[in-house]
Simulated scan of single mutants.
Amino acid sequence: MPVTYLGLPLTIRKPKKIHFKPLVDAFQKKLDGWQSKFLSLGGRLTLVKSVLTALPLHYMQVIKLPSWLIKHLDGIRRRFFWKGNDKCLGGHCLVNWTKCCLPKKCGGLGILDLQTQNQALLMKWLWKLLSEPDSTWSSTVNLLYGTTDVATLSLDTRISAAFKDILQYKDFFSASVSVVGGNQGPIWKWSATGNYSSASAYRLLADPGWRSPYHSILWKLKIPPKVRVFLWLALLDRILTQQNLLIRNWPTISACKCCSLDCTETTAHLFILCDFAKQIWSRLRIRYNIPPLLDPPDLHTFWTQNRAVIGDIWDVIWAATIWIIWKERNRRVFSSRSLSSTLLMAEICATIEAWKRIL
């Protein structure tokens, strides 16, 4: 001891930093093979959720990851999502990582929170003690400590360090399980089948108790992933408009580049209140024969209130127009170029028609 067994450090004491080096090296190996500068935020989000988040799951099923390791892995995931392989400072993160790790229904990106997922996976061993009394796991615990009762085990001073980490969750686990008589066995309250699953435990543990007003629509839009992430940022008012650049003390443009008004560029101004934006919305209203638009002072209300009148087709019109206006704004700021109104409308309409075909 310690030895490596099935890719995991096997030790009677708490694992040391050196034991987790293969996991950290696996993260770095993945990052070295990705051309992050050619990936959009949507592409990087997919890699974070499907690859980087999956790497520690093998460890998390049997070991409670130390806080320093979770912080380190979160730093790698956060840096790659916001900046790729470049250095990532606090100002580069448009939304804090805690919010990014919230479920989509709660306004986040649905990235797994490692600490919460670790707890959900470890509680599986407590479930096995109750539901599978004849399993090798239950028999081993009974042989070592003379019982499989969770409350009794938590008081035993002979318990190993790894088992102590699992027993830390006994209170939450016990409150979530109903034990009935007969041959029915224990029932997990948070799943339809009554059987424990780490997914159901994670959903419960990660739920802050409130809901995003637009999640059920935004993440189901049949549009490119990078556009969905951009719209998520815009709805949170976190895109780098002049106002948000000033908050971060970054060099910024003097005023809105899309209109002649000498006013601070905000999200609401750029996409709704700007004369440039109003002309675009007016021409789109005529082009698609939609009723007069309401002009509320924020992007979310502008979307939802007009959607209630126009219908589902408004989702594509709204998303495509917001996206193209942002591209035109960046063209004017960074390249000092602009499209004519005719070409800009043609680009917006072509984008709308392309996205309508995949609905």
Rank of each mutant, 00 (worst) to 15 (best):
V3S: 14
L8S: 00
L8K: 01
P9V: 08
K16S: 14
I18L: 12
I18F: 02
F20T: 00
P22W: 09
D25C: 03
F27D: 04
K30I: 07
K30Q: 12
L31M: 13
L31E: 07
W34Y: 06
F38R: 13
L39C: 12
L41G: 03
R44G: 01
T46P: 04
L47M: 14
T53V: 13
L57I: 15
M60L: 13
Q61K: 13
K64P: 01
W68T: 08
H72I: 00
F81H: 08
K83Y: 05
K83S: 12
G84A: 06
D86A: 09
H92F: 01
L94A: 08
L94G: 05
K99H: 09
C100A: 06
L102M: 14
P103W: 03
K104W: 03
G107H: 02
G108S: 06
G108R: 02
L109F: 05
I111C: 10
L114H: 11
Q115N: 15
M123C: 15
W125L: 14
P133W: 12
W137A: 09
W137D: 10
W137K: 11
G146K: 09
T147C: 08
A151S: 13
T152D: 14
T152S: 13
L153K: 06
L155F: 10
T157C: 00
A162P: 11
K164V: 06
Q168T: 11
Q168V: 05
Q168H: 09
Y169L: 06
S174G: 10
P186T: 01
T193A: 14
T193Q: 12
G194A: 05
S200H: 11
G209M: 14
W210Q: 15
R211N: 09
H215I: 02
S216L: 06
I217C: 00
I223S: 03
K226W: 05
V227W: 03
V229Y: 00
D237K: 07
N244V: 02
L246E: 15
R248K: 11
T252M: 05
C256T: 10
S260V: 11
L261V: 11
D262M: 13
C263G: 06
E265G: 05
H269Q: 04
L270P: 01
F271A: 01
K278M: 12
Y288Q: 08
Y288D: 08
Y288W: 11
P291I: 04
P291N: 05
P297L: 12
P297K: 11
L299Y: 05
H300C: 10
A308N: 07
I310K: 12
I310A: 09
W314V: 07
K327R: 15
R332M: 15
R337I: 06
S341E: 12
T342S: 09
I348H: 02
I352Q: 06
I352H: 07
E353H: 11
K356L: 12
I358L: 09
I358R: 09
